[in-house]
Nucleic acid binder design. Structure first.
Length: 427
RNA sequence: GGCGGGUUGCCCGAGUGGUCAAAGGGAGCAGACUGUAAAUCUGUCGCGAGAGCUACGGAGGUUCGAACCCUCCACCCGCCA
């Protein structure tokens, strides 16, 4: 899957994949990368129990650099996560330390399978709590704070937005960029790290580090910032069709839902996603792009994209199951022609709830999680958006008959075109 | 510490005694068209079958009646110190 066998420079590859939005001196960086293994880092803050789809850009960019023969440091922000990167809208709520610690652990486990922690270019996991937890307020102010100019800190987008809003900003969040700057300095000192990657929305935080290193160590180190991906409405991606975030944690977003999210990506995003989130080579991606333009309804691009990325994140077996479930539930065939094993597997992927007995259509939709209340369920039925075993239902209060059960046990409920859930009826 | 402004449903935001479950926008959901796309148009969008219930930062109060008036509390913003 690598394409950096010395033929193509990794920077060229990143540019082709549109993964460079901003950078420090790109020529100098290109030359330095060509000279030999470089140590680089990318940080992830534990602001939730899981990383989400958008983080994949960062992780995979790091992976590309590793495949090109460089050494990644994956930083999980045990310290920065306790403080909170200022958002433009409002102050964050501080999370309890134990909670953040548990999130650090979960996020570590998510990153680990995506990078190689063995061999010559082994990645290493670091936590910024290691060099900040014991730091005294006085050393922080004398050794670090002295190198930061407040007027420059105020210029950062999120900070100035907050100052101009009626939300204001706490000293805590204002200090965030200093912590991130320290991280780069620390990793430069400990591991000779000379490149940081991150999202372009992080640019202010990224430059905090390079500036600090320049002032204290007199060294010029590098930055690469990836562009944000937005859909045709300018919305940040990572929103599933269900309206929520697409998480990397399989407990929070099932592999099936993850696969479906990618399968349903709008055509216009297919090239971006294939380049950014897969390790397919240029010829293959170009062919899929062409195919998407010529025969969009075949969804060749989305199909391959979903398969590749789900495999990266959840592994081959989960991906096979997600594909199988998708084919079973959205295939042409009659649901009753599916074998019990296939049906159960498909519904398990899509989401299967147990119920002791049958009830009205509305009750079953709520139980299956397809409606938030009975009223919501009735509304959906009234709108013609409710299906039972692929048949549109018109009476929300009708009691479902046992003869509807597939193989005597299961019901396939669907809301709208693509939200499916199953019910297993019986003791 | 002083003075002034603010806190509305997922988000933004109107509302300043009954006609307010609360305008408008966004997001979400559904339908039509399609391809399990996009765009567009339409409908919908607290809970409840309904009576009704819960809701406009929190707690009390005035009133036949409060998101709207009063008191206290919490938090936020601005100016002054």
């Amino acid at each position: 899957m690598g394409n950096n066998d010395g033929v193509t420079h990794v920077i060229d590859d990143l540019q082709w994949r549109d993964l460079i939005a901003l950078s420090t001196d790109i020529e100098a960086l290109t030359a330095e990368l060509a000279r030999g293994p470089m140590t680089l880092y990318c940080g992830f803050d534990p602001t939730a129990p899981s990383l989400h789809f958008g983080h994949l850009t960062q992780i995979l960019t790091v992976r590309r650099l590793q495949l090109a023969g460089h050494r990644p440091l994956a930083l999980v922000g045990g310290a920065t996560g306790l403080i909170g990167d200022p958002r433009e809208t409002a102050e964050r709520t501080l999370q309890p330390r134990e909670l953040v610690e548990s999130w650090v652990e979960r996020i570590r486990l998510q990153i680990e399978p995506l990078l190689d922690f063995t061999g010559e270019y082994a990645a290493r996991m670091v936590n910024n709590l290691d060099w900040t937890d014991g730091l005294s307020a006085l050393s922080f102010l004398r050794d670090i704070g002295k190198h930061f100019r407040v007027n420059k800190m105020l210029a950062k987008d999120a900070v100035s937005a907050r100052l101009n809003s009626d939300a204001g900003i706490s000293y805590t969040e204002f200090s965030y960029q200093i912590l991130q700057g320290m991280d780069y300095l620390e990793l430069f000192r400990r591991y000779g790290c000379r490149l940081q990657t991150g999202g372009s929305d992080q640019w202010g935080n990224l430059t905090a580090g390079t500036d600090l290193i320049h002032r204290i160590e007199g060294a010029s180190v590098h930055l690469l910032a990836t562009p944000l991906v937005v859909d045709s409405n300018g919305q940040k991606i990572g929103k599933s069709t269900g309206g929520g975030n697409v998480w990397l944690d399989p407990e929070m977003t099932s592999p099936y839902a993850f696969y479906q999210f990618l399968f349903n990506i709008e055509d216009a995003l297919v090239p971006t996603f294939l380049r950014r989130f897969t390790f397919l080579d240029r010829e293959e991606i170009t062919a899929l792009e062409k195919e998407t333009v010529e025969r969009p309804s075949a969804r060749a691009g989305q199909r391959r994209l979903a398969e590749e990325v789900t495999t990266l994140v959840h592994g081959e077996q989960e991906t096979r199951q997600a594909i199988g479930a998708s084919q079973a539930l959205f295939g042409r065939g009659d649901l009753s022609s599916l074998t019990p094993a296939t049906l159960r597997a498909a519904l398990s992927e899509a989401g299967l709830a147990q119920v002791p007995g049958l009830g009205t259509v509305a009750e079953l939709f709520r139980t299956a999680g397809l409606a938030s209340s009975l009223g919501d369920a009735r509304r959906t039925v009234g709108e013609g958006g409710a299906y039972l075993n692929n048949q549109r239902v018109s009476d929300a209060d009708a009691v479902v008959d046992a003869s509807e059960l597939l193989h005597g046990r299961w019901l396939v409920l669907r809301r709208g075109k693509r939200t499916v859930a199953g019910l297993e009826v019986g003791p």
